[in-house]
Amino acid sequence: MSDARGTFTNLPEDKRARVLDAALEEFADHGFQGASMNRLATRLSIAKGSIFQYFGSKEGLFAYTFGRAVDLFKAPLKAARERARDGGFFEVLRQSLLTGMEFIASYPRIHRIYLKMLHNEDFPLREQVLGQVRAASAKYFRPLVLEGIERGELRPDLDPDLAVYVLHTLLDRFLQSLAAAPLDGGLGIFGAPRDVVERRAGELVEFLRRGFSA
Rank of each mutant, 00 (worst) to 15 (best):
34 G>F: 11
30 H>Q: 05
209 R>Y: 06
140 Y>F: 15
199 R>G: 08
28 A>E: 14
186 G>C: 10
43 R>Q: 12
20 L>W: 10
117 M>D: 03
184 D>Y: 07
117 M>R: 00
193 P>K: 08
80 A>G: 05
22 A>P: 07
59 E>M: 01
31 G>A: 03
40 L>M: 08
48 K>G: 04
84 A>I: 04
142 R>K: 07
7 T>E: 13
111 H>F: 15
40 L>F: 14
105 A>P: 11
178 L>E: 02
161 D>R: 09
13 E>D: 14
144 L>G: 00
137 S>P: 00
162 L>E: 05
2 S>T: 12
214 A>V: 09
17 A>Y: 00
58 K>T: 05
10 N>H: 15
32 F>W: 14
162 L>M: 10
7 T>L: 07
182 P>C: 06
138 A>M: 06
27 F>W: 11
134 R>E: 05
123 F>D: 00
192 A>N: 06
214 A>M: 06
213 S>K: 07
146 L>W: 01
8 F>C: 10
207 F>A: 13
97 L>F: 03
25 E>F: 02
46 I>Y: 05
118 L>I: 00
200 R>Q: 04
105 A>I: 09
125 L>S: 08
84 A>S: 06
204 L>V: 00
192 A>W: 04
157 D>G: 04
52 F>H: 11
57 S>T: 06
159 D>M: 01
5 R>T: 14
210 R>V: 10
199 R>H: 02
151 R>W: 03
11 L>M: 12
93 L>I: 01
45 S>R: 15
180 A>G: 07
196 V>N: 08
174 F>N: 09
191 G>N: 06
30 H>G: 01
149 I>H: 04
158 L>T: 01
16 R>E: 12
28 A>Y: 14
174 F>M: 07
59 E>K: 04
38 N>E: 14
196 V>C: 05
164 V>K: 01
70 V>R: 02
79 A>P: 08
32 F>P: 09
129 V>C: 03
86 D>F: 03
86 D>A: 15
22 A>L: 12
147 E>R: 14
172 D>P: 05
82 E>G: 13
201 A>E: 04
116 K>H: 08
46 I>D: 02
55 F>V: 09
27 F>Q: 10
114 Y>W: 15
61 L>W: 01
14 D>M: 13
156 P>I: 03
23 A>L: 11
214 A>I: 05
112 R>F: 11
77 L>A: 12
19 V>Y: 06
212 F>C: 09
193 P>T: 04
21 D>F: 10
102 E>I: 00
162 L>S: 11
116 K>N: 09
146 L>C: 03
176 Q>K: 07
90 F>G: 00
30 H>F: 13
5 R>E: 14
179 A>F: 07
143 P>V: 03
155 R>W: 05
144 L>I: 03
211 G>C: 06
102 E>T: 02
105 A>K: 14
60 G>M: 08
206 E>Q: 09
192 A>K: 06
63 A>D: 10
24 L>A: 12
36 S>E: 11
211 G>D: 10
113 I>V: 13
200 R>M: 03
66 F>S: 05
190 F>I: 09
202 G>D: 01
85 R>K: 07
50 S>E: 15
206 E>P: 09
19 V>P: 05
122 D>Y: 13
68 R>C: 04
126 R>M: 03
129 V>G: 02
174 F>K: 14
10 N>E: 15
15 K>Y: 06
105 A>D: 11
2 S>V: 12
149 I>A: 02
43 R>A: 14
15 K>G: 09
89 F>P: 02
34 G>K: 02
34 G>A: 08
100 G>L: 01
